[in-house]
Design a protein around this nucleic acid. Structure first.
Length: 818
RNA sequence: GCCGAGGUGGCGGAAUUGGCAUACGCGCCGGUCUCAAAAACCGGUGGGGGCAACUUCAUGCGGGUUCAAGUCCCGCCCUCGGCACCA
C-alpha cells in the first residue's frame, strides 16, 4: 500500500462528511468520556511543538472511543487578551480580524493532522455570544460580593500599560513582555478568590490524577500559614496595628514594628510628624523599586522611622514603628512585628538602624554565653527573657502565649494565605467589557442581565496609553443609569483573559444555548472533564482560576462537580537544538513540510514516539525518518498479505505460528497497559514495532496460515489507529471491513496464546548469567534444579563441590550459589 | 533557602516494581542493489582484554541489606522545574 497525502485527504473528508466525531450530549447509551485539550491562543500558525498537545488529546479520544465510550472532544479559541492586541498593533490590523484569520489557519492545520474534534461545538471567547456569559458570571460574582473594586497596591507593567494579576508576575516580570513589574496604588476590580483559599487547598486531595508537581505548586501558591494576629496599640493614638505572626513564641523579642508604604493607617500615623516631608520622599523612592528576585538579592533593606511608638503587649515596652521596604503589601495587613534576634531580615534591618536585639529563644544545645548574636536564630528552642513563659519550648509557648493573648484580648489565632485576590481589570481594549455603570447618585450599578452583552465597540486607535482605549469612545462610556436614568458612565476597563478561559469547558456542552451560559442538567452529566491535557505553564494561573470559578458556580447551584478536571496530563515541550522553538531563533519545524513529504501519520507517530510525553523532547529529523521507515515496513506487510498463499496447516500450530500468536497477544496486553497507565505512547509504539519485526521473522521462519498472518496485520493497525488514524483506516478497508476503524473495538487479549509450557530460563552462578536452560513449566522444581546443575558450564564452575544453595524463581531464573 | 522531578550506551530512552540491564528507535560499522552516490533492504553494534571459547568493568559517587539491587536503606554530588523579603 502506498501512503501519501491523498490517503490523509481521503479519510479526513470521510470523517468530516460522516460527522464521526459529532456527539449529542443528551445521548446516554454509552458511558461518557470528556477529553479536553487546553484551547489555544490563536496568535500564529502552529508548529510541531504546539502539535504534541493536540495529537496526545486525539490519541486519547480515539483510544477511548474504541473502548466503547461516548467521547466528547471539542475545540475552541482563547481569543481575547493582550497578545492578540499587541500583535494587532504591530501588524496594523484590528485584533478581531487578525484573530479570526489565525483561527481559520489553525483550524485548517488541525484538520490536516487528522485531529477528530466535534467542530459543531467550536467556541470563540472574543465573540459576543460567548463573552455575554463571561459578563454574566462577573455579575453573579458581583451580586455575591465576590467581585469588588478597591484601591490597592497592584502590579503595573509599564510596557503593556496595564495592571497584572499576581499570578501573571513571573520572577518580578510581566508574564507577556518580561518588563519588570512596578507597584502602584490604583482603584481596580478584584475577584475574591481568597474566600475560596481553604477549599482550593482542601480539594487538592480530590485531584488524585494530577501530576504531583502541579498539586505542590498550587499548594505553595495558596501558602497557608497558621499564627496569631496581634493588635499593637499605638502610643497616644486610637490606632491599632494588627500584625500577623507565625512565631508568637518570639513576641517578647519584638523590638519594633515595620509597615509597608501602602499601609492603610500610615497617613494617620504621620500626619503631624515633623519629618513628614522626609517620610514622603522616602516612600516615593521605594515605591518605584522593582520586585524581581534578582534585584531583591542586592536590594538593601531600607526604612524610615515614623516618629511613633507602639506598645509591645507582653513586655509593655515602647517599640518604634518604622516603614520598611521589605514588608509586603498584600500579606496580612501589610504590617509586621519584628524580632531581630530570630528573623534574618529583621536582624539585618536592626543592625543597620541600631535597633535593639533581644534574644528570647535559645537553641537547645547552645549555652547562654554568647552575649552578641552574630546572626538571627530562626529555629525553635527554649524561651528566655520571656517573663512567665521562660523555659517553655517554642512549641508549648506558641500554644500558651496564644491562649493568654486570646484570654486578654491582645490577639487572636488566625490564618494567612499567600494567595491574593485575583485582579481582573485591564486597561486594554481586547477583552470583555466589565458590565458596571457608575452613576453620580446611585454609585456603582451592575448592568441589568437583560442588557447583556455590553458590546465591545469598534475602535480605531487602541495603542496602550495607560487608560483603556474605551475611555476615548464617548458613545461607549456615556450612558444612563439603569436605576435612576440619570447620566452615567460605563466602566471602561476590560476583563483579564483568564476570566474567559476559567469557564469555557462548561460552554462546550451547550455552545449555542442563547438563554443561559450552559444547561446545568447536561453539565452535571458531562462534568468533570475526564482527561484534561495541556502545558504545565498553566499549573497555577488557569488551573487555579478555573477551580475557583467552578466552586463558585457550584455554590450558586449551577454545577454539581466540586472540581472541573478529574485527570490532568501536562505534556513536555518539544525543543530544537536545545531551545524552545521560536521564529526569532529560527529553529521552528514547519508541519506543512512534513505533511507533504511524509503525511500526517508520520508526524503524529513520531511526536508520540519521541519520548515520555510528560517530558521535554528534542526534535530530530532523523527520528522522523526512522518512523517513516517503520510505517513503510508495516505497510509492506499489507501488500505481502494481499498476495500471500498458504495452504491450511495441520491442526496444531507450528512454531512460527505459536510465536506470532504469542507476540500478537502479548503486544495487545502491553500496549493496553501502557495506555491505561500514564499515556506511555513511546513504549506502546515500540511494542507495535516489535510485533511488526516478529511478523517478518515468523514469515522468514516458514509458512503461516493466512488467518494468523492477517490477525497480525490487523492487530498492528488497530493498535496503531489512535496514533496513525489515516493509514489504519486505509488498511482496515483493504482488509475488507466496511465501516470506520473507529467503530471497531479495541483488540482483546486471548490468554491461551500467552500460556506456554516450554520456555527458556537463565541459569546464574553467584548472580551472574552463565547459561540458558530450556524447561517445561510442569516439571517439578527439583527436576529443573538438577537439570541446571547438570549443565557442563555449571559443573565446570562448581568444580566438583556441591552448591551452597539453589534458588529457582518461576519462569525466570535459577541462581546457583557456589 | 523551601518544594518537586530526575541522573542508565555515541544519542532519545526501556526494564512487568527486587529476578537475564541497555527493549524500541536514532547514529555508527559491514553487506546487497548501482558505473557511482543517495534511497531502500539485510546483518552487526555498551566499554576494556583475547584469534577464539571466554573474561572483566559498567545504571551520578561512597557505604549497606540480599542468593540476587538501576530498583530497597543510609550518606553525598550534580542537573532541570517551580516558589521565594509571606513575618
Amino acid at each position: 500500500m502506498i501512503y501519501s497525502r491523498e490517503t490523509d485527504n481521503k479519510w479526513q473528508s470521510f470523517w468530516e462528511s460522516k460527522k464521526v466525531f459529532a456527539i449529542d450530549v443528551k445521548n446516554s447509551a454509552k458511558p461518557k468520556y470528556y477529553c479536553l485539550v487546553m484551547f489555544p491562543y490563536p496568535s500564529s500558525e502552529l508548529h510541531v511543538g504546539h502539535a504534541r498537545n493536540y495529537i496526545i488529546g486525539d490519541a486519547v479520544a480515539r483510544y477511548k472511543k474504541m473502548h466503547g465510550f461516548y467521547v466528547l472532544n471539542p475545540m475552541g479559541w482563547d481569543a481575547f487578551g493582550l497578545p492578540a492586541e499587541n500583535q494587532a498593533i504591530k501588524h496594523k490590523i484590528h485584533p478581531r480580524e487578525w484573530t479570526l484569520k489565525n483561527i481559520k489557519k489553525i483550524t485548517e492545520q488541525l484538520k490536516g493532522w487528522g485531529i477528530g474534534y466535534d467542530w459543531s461545538r467550536e467556541i470563540t471567547t472574543c465573540l459576543p455570544v460567548y463573552y455575554k456569559w463571561t459578563q454574566w458570571i462577573f455579575l453573579k460574582l458581583y451580586n455575591k460580593g465576590l467581585a469588588y473594586r478597591k484601591e490597592a497596591p497592584v502590579n503595573w507593567c509599564e510596557s503593556c500599560k496595564t495592571v497584572l494579576a499576581n499570578e501573571q508576575v513571573i520572577e518580578g516580570r510581566c508574564e507577556r513582555c518580561s518588563t519588570e513589574v512596578k507597584q502602584k496604588v490604583l482603584r481596580q476590580w478584584f475577584f475574591k478568590i481568597t474566600d475560596y483559599a481553604q477549599r482550593l487547598l482542601d480539594d487538592i486531595k480530590l485531584l488524585e490524577q494530577w501530576p504531583e508537581r502541579v498539586k505542590t505548586m498550587q499548594n505553595n501558591w495558596i501558602g497557608r500559614s497558621e499564627g496569631v494576629g496581634i493588635d499593637f496599640v499605638v502610643e497616644n493614638s486610637k490606632i491599632k496595628l494588627n500584625c500577623f505572626t507565625t512565631r508568637v513564641d518570639t513576641i517578647f523579642g519584638a523590638t519594633f514594628l515595620a509597615l509597608n508604604w501602602g499601609h492603610a493607617s500610615l497617613e494617620e500615623l504621620i500626619k503631624d510628624s515633623p519629618s513628614k516631608k522626609d517620610i514622603e520622599k522616602f516612600i516615593e523612592k521605594i515605591k518605584g523599586e522593582s520586585l524581581s528576585p534578582r534585584r531583591l538579592e542586592n536590594l538593601a533593606k531600607e526604612g524610615i522611622f515614623t516618629g511613633k511608638y507602639a506598645l509591645n503587649p507582653m513586655t509593655g515596652k515602647k517599640i518604634p514603628i518604622w516603614i520598611a521596604n521589605y514588608i509586603l503589601a498584600g500579606y496580612g495587613s501589610g504590617a509586621a512585628m519584628c524580632v531581630p534576634a530570630h528573623d534574618a531580615r529583621d536582624f539585618e534591618f536592626a543592625k543597620k538602624y541600631k535597633l535593639p536585639v533581644v534574644e528570647v529563644v535559645k537553641a537547645p544545645q547552645s549555652q547562654a554565653n554568647s552575649k552578641q548574636l552574630k546572626k538571627a536564630y530562626e529555629g525553635e528552642g527554649l524561651l528566655v527573657n520571656s517573663g512567665k513563659f521562660d523555659g517553655l519550648s517554642s512549641k508549648k509557648a506558641k500554644v500558651n502565649i496564644a491562649d493568654y493573648m486570646e484570654a486578654n484580648n491582645i490577639g487572636k489565632r488566625g490564618l494567612n494565605y499567600k494567595l491574593r485576590d485575583w485582579l481582573v481589570s485591564r486597561q486594554r481594549y481586547w477583552g470583555a467589557p466589565i458590565p458596571i455603570i457608575y452613576c453620580p447618585s446611585c454609585g456603582q450599578v451592575p448592568v441589568p442581565e437583560g442588557d447583556l452583552p455590553v458590546l465591545l465597540p469598534e475602535v480605531k486607535e487602541f495603542l496602550p496609553t495607560g487608560k483603556s482605549p474605551l475611555t476615548y469612545i464617548d458613545e461607549f462610556h456615556k450612558t444612563k443609569c439603569p436605576k435612576c436614568g440619570a447620566k452615567a458612565r460605563r466602566e471602561t476597563d476590560t476583563m483579564d483573559t483568564f476570566v474567559d478561559s476559567s469557564w469555557y469547558y462548561l460552554r462546550y456542552i451547550s455552545p449555542r444555548e442563547a438563554n443561559k451560559p450552559f444547561i446545568t442538567k447536561d453539565i452535571d452529566k458531562w462534568l468533570p472533564v475526564d482527561q484534561y491535557i495541556g502545558g504545565v505553564e498553566h499549573a497555577i494561573l488557569h488551573l487555579m482560576y478555573s477551580r475557583f470559578i467552578n466552586k463558585f458556580l457550584m455554590d450558586e447551584g449551577l454545577v454539581k462537580s466540586p472540581e472541573p478536571f478529574k485527570r490532568l496530563f501536562t505534556q513536555g515541550m518539544i525543543v530544537k537544538d536545545g531551545a524552545k522553538m521560536s521564529k526569532s531563533k529560527g529553529n521552528v519545524v514547519s508541519p506543512d513540510y512534513i505533511l507533504n513529504k511524509y503525511g500526517a501519520d508520520t508526524m503524529r507517530l513520531y511526536i508520540l514516539f519521541m519520548g515520555p510525553p510528560q517530558k521535554d523532547a528534542e526534535w530530530q529529523d532523523e527520528g522522523l525518518q526512522g518512523i517513516w521507515r517503520f510505517i513503510q515496513r508495516a505497510l509492506r506487510l499489507v501488500d505481502v498479505l494481499g498476495e500471500y498463499k498458504a495452504g491450511a496447516g495441520p491442526k496444531e500450530y507450528n512454531l512460527q505460528e505459536k510465536n506470532l500468536l504469542k507476540k500478537i497477544h502479548s503486544t495487545i496486553k502491553e500496549v493496553t497497559r501502557d495506555l491505561e497507565g500514564n499515556f506511555q505512547f513511546n513504549t506502546a509504539i515500540s511494542r507495535v514495532m516489535e510485533l511488526v519485526n516478529q511478523t517478518y521473522k515468523s514469515l522468514a521462519q516458514g509458512s503461516l496460515r493466512k488467518e494468523i498472518f492477517k490477525e497480525a496485520v490487523d492487530t498492528t493497525f488497530l493498535l496503531l489507529s489512535p496514533f496513525t488514524p489515516h493509514i489504519s483506516e486505509e488498511v482496515n478497508e483493504i482488509l475488507g471491513n466496511k465501516s470506520s476503524i473507529l467503530n471497531r473495538s479495541w483488540p482483546k487479549v486471548d490468554e491461551n496464546h500467552l500460556k506456554e509450557e516450554e520456555l527458556e530460563v537463565a541459569v546464574l552462578v553467584n548472580g551472574k548469567v552463565k547459561a540458558k536452560l530450556k524447561i517445561n513449566v510442569n516439571w517439578p522444581q527439583e527436576e529443573i534444579k538438577s537439570k541446571a546443575l547438570a549443565l557442563e558450564k555449571v559443573k565446570k564452575l562448581l568444580s566438583q563441590k556441591p552448591p551452597k544453595k539453589v534458588i529457582y524463581v518461576e519462569r525466570k531464573i535459577i541462581n546457583i550459589v557456589a
